[in-house]
Amino acid sequence: MNTTNSNTEITLLARSAPYGSGAAKLCLDVSIAAAVFEQTVNYVFLDDGIYQVLDEQDASPINSKSLGKTLEALGLYGIEKLYVDEDSLRKRNLSTDQLLPQVELVNADAIKKFINQSKFVLTL
């Protein structure tokens, strides 16, 4: 592959709630692949996507893997921050203490900047 010397910025806009559909998992898989190939990943959670970063997920009763656990471990791949749209959080009456420790609140301007400076934006 031709990927070694080129660093591309990729923004992932995760908008789907986890478990009910496969979208959240696909988005997660893309984030890991992008990080493995040493691309810069802006992983942003908005709308129902912020339910992906709720703390204390335990998917074992539905025979599934906990998405939150994997998201929490993304630092291993160099994805240190999980960005959360503050507007989406407010609308759902959630606060950061209910979310995974590495979340960072961002406003619309910051997300706009991520979109603008990225070569590839994936909304899932």
């Binding site: 592959m1 031709n2 990927t3 080129s6 591309t8 990729i10 898989d29 893309v30 890991i32 692949a33 992008a34 493995v36 190939f37 691309q39 070569k119 590839f120 994936l122 909304t123 899932l124």
Partner: peptide, 20 residues
């Protein structure tokens, strides 16, 4: 093939368009 091919496409294409 693996997801590396998607990342490769995002790097080496002028435009990457998603349909879903």
């Amino acid at each position: 093939a693996g997801l590396g091919q998607l990342i490769d496409a995002s790097i080496n294409s002028d435009r990457l368009v998603n349909f879903g």
